[in-house]
Design a protein around this nucleic acid. Sequence first.
DNA 1: CCAGACGTTGTT
DNA 2: GTCTGG
DNA 3: CCAGACGTTGTT
DNA 4: GTCTGG
Length: 234
Amino acid sequence: MCGRFTLTADVGAVQAAFSWAAPAPEAMFAGPRYNIAPTQTVCAVVSDGSNQLVQLKWGLVPAWSKASQILPPLINARAETVAEKPSFRSAFRHRRCLILADGWFEWQVQPNGKPKQPHWVGLHSRHVFAMAGLWEKWGPPGETELRTCTIITCEASAVLAPLHARMPVILAPESYADWLRPQPGDAQALRALLRPFDAEPFDVRPVSTIVNNARIDSDECVRPLDPIAQAGGQ
DNA sequence: CCAGACGTTGTT
DNA sequence: GTCTGG
DNA sequence: CCAGACGTTGTT
DNA sequence: GTCTGG
């Protein structure tokens, strides 16, 4: 699945990589980010006909929700059901987005009830990539309006399956325009985009459990675990 | 996703 | 155990 | 037509 | 917002 991720590239590099999207005034985010957690602000591209680089809060709140709080955290949406679920179907038709990242974390269940081992997963190229997401507005328009999002997941590819059964949907650049188009579009065609990414190889590395604590946002979260110490620990 | 909190009442 | 916070 | 429901995923 | 039930 995807319950934590990274965007370690600096603001300039992100804006350069997505220069076809106009940075919104509030789009300045404090990068680099080594441990982005639910409820925090993420960097995203949305479109109302023109593409915009914006900030959204991670954890989708349906527009019809009576209160913005008191909710289970809608941080992920299954590709298999996203078109039908009441919480997502409206956003799936009208408010698809790209959520920018350069890696994410998976917690691998260990045998014998040992603590889960976190892993960082990124592209071997280290490029920033785009996860398929949905977003919503909640509350009266204006300063207080809440803008939230969720990350779509699919079955894990063969390489990642040993870590976890699910992975975030990563879109190839060729698909960005089709995914972002604000019109409802062809549900079948959109659904076809939501599959395990295999266009580029992944780099997977075990990392320190320091990443478990969402308050810690340091490069130690992505530093490769010392192989010797790791072997000694087994 | 994981970490951490969660202590009660009555009285001022 | 369950809920909230990050 | 209106009323009322619907909130998610992943884990064990 | 959208779907189902009456």
